[in-house]
Amino acid sequence: METILSISGLHKRFGKIHAVNNVSFEIQKGNVYGILGPNGSGKSTTLGIVLNVVNKTAGTYSWFGGTTETHDALKKVGAIIERPNFYPYMSAYDNLRLVCKIKGAPVSKVDEKLALVGLLERKDSKFRNFSLGMKQRLAIASALLNDPEILILDEPTNGLDPQGIRQIRDIITLIASQGTTILLASHLLDEVEKVCSHVVVLRKGVILYTGTVNGMISSEGFFELQADDNAQLTALLQQHAAVDKIEPHDGKLTVYLKGSLEAAELNRYLATNGLYLNHLVKRKNSLEEQFIQLTSNQPEK
């Protein structure tokens, strides 16, 4: 699989602050990557370095297998790392036409990209009359005018209402389905879980996890159980080797696992011991639960 971006041992210091601390990961063509972490975790700084707007302290990065100099490589990159900034009294169409001249892209791309982000009917409206969500969608259209191989977005839904968030997520999914690689930074777990195939988790500039989203949340999971006699149920569960801990909640038991255990196997075990369930649901840990567990296990520095 083609490597779009490779980062190795990247460091960035701002005085005493170690904003990016030995960060290494690769972006492969055709995937949607999320850099996930709370504010101040080094997400934006990492993006700024690879986009050549922030100087690194140490480490290396290369675009497209290192065959192209950064200046030329960035011509194949679309990026939004700040708030959308267009001429307020110009129309959406005229703003994008100006961007086409700057990027050397054909003006015919304007209508195509406006349609992609759902703004074609508002092409003649002035930018100052757009909602925040519409401004963000126009920025995405602008970043796509040169048909980049990778689109980089820094907190793309920040400040948007639920409808605006949904629209941006749908657009990201659509762009990815057309073959464009996407790298987005976000502090929103729900956003990463819904749109990303891969995730890099950062905390205070340090990588805690890198890999697929499914790989991060594919732990053994947990059961929600209920029986007429929850005390007997608890006693039997405590004897099972795959059970880690049991927590009562609203008349049900939440059963966390430390080993593989399927619902049918658990049901047979309990029935063999004379106990029959009236509620059994197996759930997968959410990205939020895995993220909290991952970050809470890290000592403060």
Results as ranks from 00 to 15, higher is better:
residue 171 I to W: 06
residue 171 I to T: 15
residue 171 I to R: 06
residue 172 I to V: 15
residue 172 I to Q: 04
residue 173 T to G: 06
residue 173 T to M: 10
residue 174 L to W: 05
residue 174 L to G: 03
residue 174 L to S: 14
residue 175 I to L: 07
residue 175 I to P: 03
residue 175 I to Y: 04
residue 176 A to V: 10
residue 177 S to R: 03
residue 177 S to L: 07
residue 177 S to D: 05
residue 177 S to W: 03
residue 178 Q to L: 14
residue 179 G to K: 05
residue 179 G to E: 05
residue 179 G to C: 07
residue 179 G to D: 09
residue 179 G to A: 02
residue 179 G to R: 06
residue 180 T to C: 11
residue 180 T to L: 06
residue 180 T to V: 15
residue 181 T to P: 03
residue 182 I to N: 03
residue 182 I to E: 00
residue 183 L to Y: 00
residue 184 L to K: 01
residue 184 L to W: 11
residue 184 L to Q: 08
residue 184 L to V: 11
residue 185 A to M: 09
residue 185 A to C: 15
residue 186 S to H: 11
residue 186 S to R: 09
residue 186 S to M: 11
residue 187 H to W: 09
residue 187 H to F: 10
residue 187 H to Y: 07
residue 187 H to Q: 14
residue 188 L to W: 07
residue 188 L to F: 12
residue 188 L to M: 15
residue 188 L to E: 13
residue 188 L to H: 11
residue 189 L to E: 14
residue 189 L to A: 12
residue 189 L to V: 14
residue 189 L to F: 11
residue 189 L to K: 03
residue 189 L to R: 06
residue 190 D to M: 12
residue 190 D to E: 15
residue 191 E to A: 11
residue 192 V to D: 11
residue 192 V to Y: 05
residue 192 V to W: 11
residue 193 E to R: 09
residue 193 E to V: 08
residue 193 E to F: 07
residue 193 E to S: 15
residue 194 K to E: 14
residue 194 K to H: 10
residue 195 V to I: 13
residue 195 V to D: 01
residue 195 V to C: 05
residue 195 V to T: 13
residue 196 C to Y: 05
residue 197 S to W: 00
residue 197 S to D: 13
residue 197 S to V: 04
residue 198 H to L: 02
residue 199 V to L: 08
residue 199 V to K: 01
residue 199 V to C: 01
residue 199 V to Q: 01
residue 199 V to N: 07
residue 200 V to K: 00
residue 200 V to M: 05
residue 200 V to F: 01
residue 200 V to G: 00
residue 200 V to E: 01
residue 201 V to G: 03
residue 201 V to H: 01
residue 201 V to I: 14
residue 201 V to S: 02
